[in-house]
Amino acid sequence: MLIETGIPTPEDIQSVTPSEERFRKGPVAIAECFQKIPCNPCTKACVKQAIRVEPDINETPKIDYDVCNGCGACIARCPGLAIFVVDKTYGENEALVKLPFEFLPIPEAGQKACGLDRSGKELGWFRVEKVIPGGKKNMTYTICLAVPKELAMEVRNIRVGGYQNG
């Protein structure tokens, strides 16, 4: 149970996973935010207004997957670091996972980082495609990681440091 371990259950994840049909259309944001807490900056982060927290601020966010284009602007804006973008159309065998990151050192594009699942378990070494700084005020980095397609819904963090070149 999430409330005992901090790890969302497969059912929790299933409840926010877009359809395979939607995944085939390109990148999409997924909010792994399962608890009703008073919080709504994600709604302001989305220029397309694809994220709604309704009827009141305590509701969990609902992303309209038909409106979301997976731009990732919400990733660094979520105070709970609970939003990820998954692009299963990235390559033939690879998906792109964009995840929030707030540790030093920050990996560089082209390096490989050790990918972790929701329990911190190592899943392998994956190529960092891009690193997007959050800026002076936001300060949260977005790491874009190329992972095997079957791990697109598993990889949610990277291990800090020890990044491999090439």
């Binding site: 999430l2 790890i7 609970a82």
Partner: peptide, 8 residues
Amino acid sequence: ASKLRRAG
């Protein structure tokens, strides 16, 4: 909690 957990 999830943030901590996925950091191991």
